[in-house]
Design a protein around this nucleic acid. Sequence first.
DNA 1: CCTGAATTAAACACTT
DNA 2: GAAGTGTTTAATTCAG
Length: 671
Amino acid sequence: MMVESASETIRSAPSGQNGVGSLSGQADGSGSGSGAGAAGTAGGGAGRDAAAGADSNGEMSPADLLHFQQQQALQVARQFLLQQASGLSSPGNNDSKQAASAVQVPVSVAMMSPQMLTPQQMQQILSPPQLQALLQQQQALMLQQLQEYYKKQQEQLHLQLLTQQQAGKQPPKEALGNKQLAFQQQLLQMQQLQQQHLLNLQRQGLVSLQPNQASGPLQTLPQAVCPTDLPQLWKGEGAPGQPAEDSVKQEGLDLTGTATTATSFAAPPKVSPPLSHHTLPNGQPTVLTPRRDSSSHEETPSSHPLYGHGECKWPGCETLCEDLGQFIKHLNTEHALDDRSTAQCRVQMQVVQQLEIQLAKESERLQAMMAHLHMRPSEPKPFSQPVTVSAADSFPDGLVHPPTSAAAPVTPLRPPGLGSASLHSGGPARRRSSDKFCSPISSELAQNHEFYKNADVRPPFTYASLIRQAILETPDRQLTLNEIYNWFTRMFAYFRRNTATWKNAVRHNLSLHKCFVRVENVKGAVWTVDEREYQKRRPPKMTGSPTLVKNMISSLSYGALNASYQAALAESSFPILNSPGMLNPGSTSSLLPLSHDDVGAPGEPLPSNGSSSPPRLSPPQYSHQVQVKEEPAEAEEDRRPGPALGPPNPSTAGPAEDRDLEEELPGEELS
DNA sequence: CCTGAATTAAACACTT
DNA sequence: GAAGTGTTTAATTCAG
């Protein structure tokens, strides 16, 4: 299986280069090939290029390999995610009859999405002493077990890693083996992450995974639960549209006798202490419910989270076991601590991680919504923040973390604020809506600087905006072509390869856009940016569709969550929505740079722009600017590029810009 | 469906 | 002549 998928991915990889855009890339290749039939040269070129791509893949570099493996791991994770999501509806399905094993606690608790319960509610449900005792008991128990296992695992993993790394040094012959090893390493990383996550969650008390799943990632889950549905979940009505009645009923009967939030949450008290037969192979009990058979709670109720409905719930296993004893035996033999198991664990970890991230997002969104509506959230971010942080910081071992960027461990392949754009959006850099309306390249870049620097992910900006950024970042706002190249390679890992392509694109953009002005300098030709031109070329879209502007503004101001907004969020996870700043309604500062860049405030917050005044942009100004910004630009277009950059923000950049231009290009251009 | 923007590829001219 | 730089054209894709 490994082999097949590997080769397949390799095959498809060439065109995409970054794997992401393989589809469009291929289409491109063939398209231009056939289309270029008319133009003989072009066709030949395309063909040759494709061949070259294949070549380069034949001898995949280690980096490529790793990248490809990352993609694959993610793929697998996504699949699992889907599975888990569909199996979600039957949360506590597993037996509760049996004296609950330690793991069971979180199971039942999990269903109730505790993070949504206020302390008050909890107190209503349980008497304080009860609650206290319960919590302590469970937490201690879980913690102990998890830590124990985690420790063991660590040692094992370490050893494995060492051996793997050694083995991985062998060259071509064992390419395949190496791939597997590397893949497993990836998976190991994931697993560790997951373990840690679980620990953290447990520490935070009563936090479990089920709710996350219930609110699954909008991007991936087919039956994603929209935020408005969540309350229903809290009420114990089961996942909407899912045949979860059985499990719910079961849970209710066994534990509490009712299915309401309150009572079902009270279930845990029954949970009896340790008694688990052996150390649990993985600390996350709830997730491994089968999607389909979850409703049929036939045979043996078991105390093991990995055992249910007479079969092993280990991912991809489904081995039938007569009873618990047999299952335990099976578990110990088939799912011992080996490479495969750890790999699978790792995948599962990724699943959980994704879900947690999603939950965090939703929580934050809720916060923002409530803030907007002047409601006071009863519980300010139970663990939405920790989710992100915990993965990164609470890693005692430091064993196999991606040495890349800080962002990498949490969201391996995508920049924190960037969402899935680079992950599974169509082409690499094509169609970057973020570039148009949402993402301020400067702030986005500042935030994810490390990420782009290290991750081989194509930045979601247009060449033009990147070039501009490069130029504007310099003190004198001018760069030679070569310096621009260097900036690209310095700032983005992605541009460290494929040089011919993007360099050509850079040159092309420099020539194509009027906003880039070539200036003969003492030391040769340098390129500068004509901000006015740059701004001019963007507005049209905004002016063209007032509704769009409106939507955007409302989004920015946390207005109604209209459908398009949701869709956009789900689909592409706009940076603007995900960026930390945006999640905090109060922080106008984060909001400002955002628009001020792409709205085109000429005065970019540059390190050293002596002339234009960077620190202006007060909120009111900003919003005003958004709405009006077109006018000046267009008027300016018709008229001459005079001092009229419009009322909103005239004096700042306009004149300054002018001065710059006049200085650098003696009047000639600006036609 | 049309249009504009962006990307990619390629040819060509010019300079070093 | 090769390499780098700059300009231009064309094809394609995508979003509005």
